[in-house]
Design a protein around this nucleic acid. Structure first.
Lengths: 151, 151
DNA sequence: TGAATGTCAATGCATCTGCATCTAAATTCC
DNA sequence: GGAATTTAGATGCAGATGCATTGACATTCA
């Protein structure tokens, strides 16, 4: 053991800053296009991936890292906008299944155009392909279950 | 030109997820310690760096990437808590200077302990020193002014 | 079976945020 | 100098969030 322990702030500070910068750029682009925000996109995308079987709110909670009431109210807004429907859950009287509507799929597709377009200048233009790959890989390491050994 | 353009989402998705995970961990630790959130910390830290000359709200706005009203109201809360003082700005009758109070410095120091302790398991334990250095470097690239050439 | 406990989802309340607007002072321009 | 414009900061209002709690159903276990 010779190398010093990594300074977490040397990672965290630029990570937080990059996140805020990119997020702001995307949200601004969406707003300017008269479209909903990224939180709506994320939920719609998960529903789209889930297909006809839909998703339970608690599943979205895990996938989106949102608190329970966050999913509940986000789903409210999306339902009021007509982008999803709540359906009683056969087999669990407490629960429900959220299903994407065609309008939901349509708006998600529209949002995707703007989203992807905003990513280019925010990310792609700053990195070579190799750098992007390496960055993605290193960020992935932060997401793995805690190592238990190191430090 | 042979390599394909980098996929920005391969970077953005883990970046956003890592951000949320780490942020939640830190905020949870702070809350559990009965301390204010990271937004308070960031402002207090900038004031501490600024020293006796303090900072103008519009300077904080740039440093913290917050909207104007965000700084205005965050400063309100910190002032009400006794962690900073607003002082009329000599030379600009519209403006003011924000100054850290001793209590502000003290709470920031307390927060730092918890903040740093939460970083270890969230970041350091996942990366070697070399990986952390490389990750910090790559994240830094995302923050540089737009290249104008690429893409 | 039925009481105790656990899980799914909604909601009241206080706080925070975003947007637009407002006031006051500074600067520009004639 | 004085009107028009710009800049610094505050704020009313609507909508979003966090926290704690509630209501309804499921599950466990005696």
């Amino acid at each position: 053991m010779t190398t010093s322990a990594p300074d977490p702030f040397a990672v965290w500070l630029p990570l937080a800053r990059a996140h805020k910068t990119i997020l702001t750029a995307v949200e601004t682009a969406l707003k300017q296009a008269g479209l909903p925000g990224l939180d709506w996109y994320d939920l719609l995308w998960e529903l789209e991936c889930a297909g006809d079987t839909g998703l339970r709110p608690y599943e979205l909670q895990e996938k989106l890292l949102l608190p329970q009431y966050g999913v509940s109210r986000l789903a409210d807004r999306l339902a009021r906008a007509g982008y999803l429907t709540r359906q009683d859950c056969s087999g669990d009287g407490r629960g429900q299944v959220l299903l994407l509507t065609p309008e939901g799929a349509r708006i998600r597709a529209q949002m995707w155009e703007v989203y992807a377009a905003a990513m280019e200048p925010a990310i792609s233009s700053h990195l070579s392909t190799g750098e992007a790959r390496r960055l993605a890989e290193l960020l992935g390491k932060l997401l793995r279950p805690a190592p238990a050994d190191k430090i």
